[in-house]
Design a protein around this nucleic acid. Structure first.
Lengths: 142, 142
DNA sequence: CCATATAGTCAAGTAGCTTGACCACTTTGG
DNA sequence: CCAAAGTGGTCAAGCTACTTGACTATATGG
């Protein structure tokens, strides 16, 4: 098995585990894509257009995604402090709870790997991946 | 940035690069999901049901995907040698060319990483990921 | 042989996007 | 200061890649 196949398989596995962990902690009706939205919203919120750029989709698509998470109580639309056209999307308390749940699930998955590989090798993995992965908009893995 | 985020970002980046490489080599109208189908079909073909299980979708969904790649000349449906109900989906010559193009693109991306990390570290990355990634059906990364 | 299971397809429905049109507000520059 | 162009957001319609449900053809096990 090649590096590329292993990487994609590991990413798929991780996504699945995070999602299962989030559901197990009582947050339903969410898809993995929402997690990336939450991550972008968590530090201070974002506009719909910024969110769309981050997720690699149109602002209309992002707006629909925001509709969903607002309807489920994870976020809310506030007037933007500096621009009357814009709205600042911010997480609610429930949204922050859910974000923490996702972080815990991710940490759990990584901890399971640490048992297989050992702490040192996990750190090496992390460092290698960090040097590979560029910052920027999220891309769907497939 | 955490390991999990780096892993997902690297996987997204890789998928994007493979896809770009495949397009650059003249194979259009394909999505990343098709690559996983090709990988399953390459060694001796598979039935629609097997393909669906591998891709984590229903047999109807897999059948529609097969319709597409057959229409574009990448695969063909043959009678199954042992079971008159079933059909064996096999890659055409063009399908095998496309599979090779994808492998080349993946190798190119990995080679670029090797320049950043060095051969040894890439091998370490590969080994670590292989010990993490289980075999089994493909899961969408999100 | 007959009952049940399995492979595949057809048809209709759905979710999650896209594109296009539009309004509200902001920025730019003469 | 104001007109023109740009930007943020939404609404509506359409599309695509799936899903579920129903069905036919073949296989399998008692």
């Amino acid at each position: 098995m090649a590096l590329s196949a292993a990487l994609l398989a590991a990413a798929g596995e991780l996504t699945q585990r995070i999602h299962e962990g989030v559901v197990a902690r009582g947050f339903e009706g969410l898809r993995p894509a929402h997690g990336f939205a939450f991550a972008r919203l968590a530090p201070g919120g974002a506009t719909v257009t910024e969110l769309g750029a981050h997720l690699g989709m149109t602002k209309q698509g992002a707006s629909q995604l925001v509709d969903e998470i607002v309807r489920r109580g994870y976020a809310e639309r506030r007037p933007h402090p500096d621009d009357a056209r814009a709205r600042l999307i911010v997480l609610t308390e429930r949204g922050r709870d859910c974000t923490r749940a996702a972080e815990e699930s991710a940490a759990e998955a990584v901890a399971a790997w640490a048992e297989l590989l050992g702490e040192g090798e996990v750190r090496a993995l992390r460092d290698g991946l960090l040097r590979i992965a560029p910052y920027g908009p999220i891309r769907p893995a497939w």
